[in-house]
Design a protein around this nucleic acid. Structure first.
Lengths: 115, 115
DNA sequence: TTGATACTGAAGCATTTGCTTAAGTATCAA
DNA sequence: TTGATACTTAAGCAAATGCTTCAGTATCAA
């Protein structure tokens, strides 16, 4: 992906590719959290968590809102759904193809190959 | 993700994070393809395609089978489904939480905050 | 106003990633 | 057996990634 303007889908899947970031998302399914709370389970500096958080917000998977000195983070279902949808679309297209192929083979048992 | 044995989910989302690899998956939803066929739409060397393909097979998203000198590639729905499921689980947990919160706020209109 | 809290930003650095080129190796067809 | 085809591998390199440390900047509480 050399010197290329990353698409929303790139950013989302890239965000999902890291176990620490997935763990952060996991935590956020149980409700909103501050940056500090989000950082607590990790053996990483707050700075590192901040960078992960920036990847998550940059991808749209997480929305944050700062009031006073604490920034509260929340999951964004809209973005989550679009990543999910991309996979589902491909999987379904392929599964339907396999179904059609199966049906065809059932109907034409003599045929060696149908593709 | 410094020096850490990548989990299947890491490998899958990492595989999905690259636009070239997603395009290859896209192609494969329309049916199996050889390495050469898979490479054709890209302005990349076959070598580069090979490396992308290795990421895809390494993640389980694609299965290949070589007969003679041509390797045929196919989508693997099982792996695709598990990536999809991870996202869906998180999204649903969070959406259900929001629903419960909404219901609670509807039932207790005076309460300033329920978390 | 002083100190603690909660985050933020910039450098720096090792590792990983996404390519390339330049070699192969194995079929297959004539 | 000879050449073309279809992939495969290794080495190298620039850019991106995932951290760290260190030095901030805002609140907030007393």
């Amino acid at each position: 992906m050399l010197q290329y303007q990353a698409s929303p889908l790139d950013l989302m899947f890239q965000a999902l590719a890291d176990p620490a970031r997935r763990a952060m998302l996991d935590r956020l399914t149980r409700g909103p959290a501050s940056v500090g709370e989000l950082a607590k389970p990790f053996a990483m500096t707050l700075s590192a968590i901040m960078q992960h958080l920036n990847v998550l917000t940059g991808s749209g998977l997480v929305k944050t809102d700062k009031v006073g000195r604490v920034r509260t983070c929340q999951l964004n279902t809209v973005a989550l759904r679009s990543a999910e949808q991309w996979i589902a679309d491909r999987r379904l297209t392929w599964e339907r193809r396999l179904d059609r192929l199966g049906a065809f083979l059932d109907a034409n048992p003599e045929d060696p190959d149908a593709s």
